[in-house]
Write a protein that binds this DNA or RNA. Structure first.
Lengths: 154, 154
DNA sequence: CATGCTAGTGCAAGTGATTGCAATAGCGAA
DNA sequence: TTCGCTATTGCAATCACTTGCACTAGCATG
């Protein structure tokens, strides 16, 4: 049972990017509400890729009164703070990537449904190719490319 | 707004890929219905990129009784025949590309909203990069990459 | 031309995501 | 501690898209 312990007050050596989020919000004139705390708690223990729907479900586990609109709006705010990045999954559904340590795109296998991250070097190659083509500045974090993975492409 | 339309020049009045579509459907055990005719009529005079919503609206101009589900289902069929290709636009919405002369991806500028096609050579570079990375076989036709175009990226 | 098989249609319900609006509640200041 | 401004919430309505199901109608065959 993952029990959240007091974080902001105590100072641990390896600080999480989530620490001080409340203060950072307030510093921008925004507010720290129970609903936002719930979502951040969920995100804190769920790094990687998540769909919006999944996040809503997990929030509701903790707080039955969670409403979708609030979650979506809070995710927008957190995206402004760089704590999550959203993209569109296979079916065009919202998909969030938590704590993007570095900007990267995603690969989605149409056959088995798995998702991979595009490695930085490969991503850079794509960015360069498109810059050379039309002078386009790609936002790699928003890219999801479909296809078939090594295993499924036979 | 720069809208890429490859075969805008020199269109031959009688050599349309849409000709004989009825027969091709029948040859596959499928049927040629008034509803399908309406959609094909709309598509025939609307090459380039269109959203599903826009197509539904245009169909309804011609036939008030048009229902969304039928349009979506017919688009699926036409996609099987290679007459349209669907992808997901900026907001994750369905976007159709009519008569894809060659498989290509799309670029979308987050700032001005314009859409470009990725040139074949550039697309090939992307495909190669991802094949080398994870052995991934990219379905280029389904790719939409967001970013900022030359003009907007200042 | 009439018939039967079944692809296709329309409806209605359902899911995911967004938005307008009135009521609520952070939180900085008094 | 109380007050007031306004960010945020929750609801309900709406949009985009999908799906299950009963009925309709293409069209191949006789």
């Amino acid at each position: 049972m993952p029990q959240a312990s007091p974080n902001a007050a105590g100072r641990l050596p390896d600080a999480s990017p989530w620490d001080g989020i409340a203060e950072r919000l307030r510093a921008s004139g925004l507010r720290w509400t129970p609903q936002r705390r719930t979502l951040v708690d969920v995100l804190r223990e769920h790094e990687g890729h998540v769909t919006a729907t999944e996040l809503i479900a997990r929030c509701r586990e903790r707080d039955q009164t969670t409403t979708p609109s609030t979650v979506y709006r809070t995710l927008d705010v957190l995206e402004d703070f760089g704590l999550v990045k959203h993209g569109h999954g296979p079916g065009g559904r919202e998909e969030y990537h938590v704590l993007p340590d570095q900007v990267h795109g995603h690969l989605h296998c149409m056959a088995c449904g798995a998702t991979w991250e595009i490695r930085p070097e490969t991503g850079a190659a794509i960015v360069d190719a498109l810059a050379a083509d039309l002078g386009f500045a790609v936002d790699l974090s928003h890219v999801t490319i479909s296809g078939r993975c090594r295993v499924c492409r036979d």
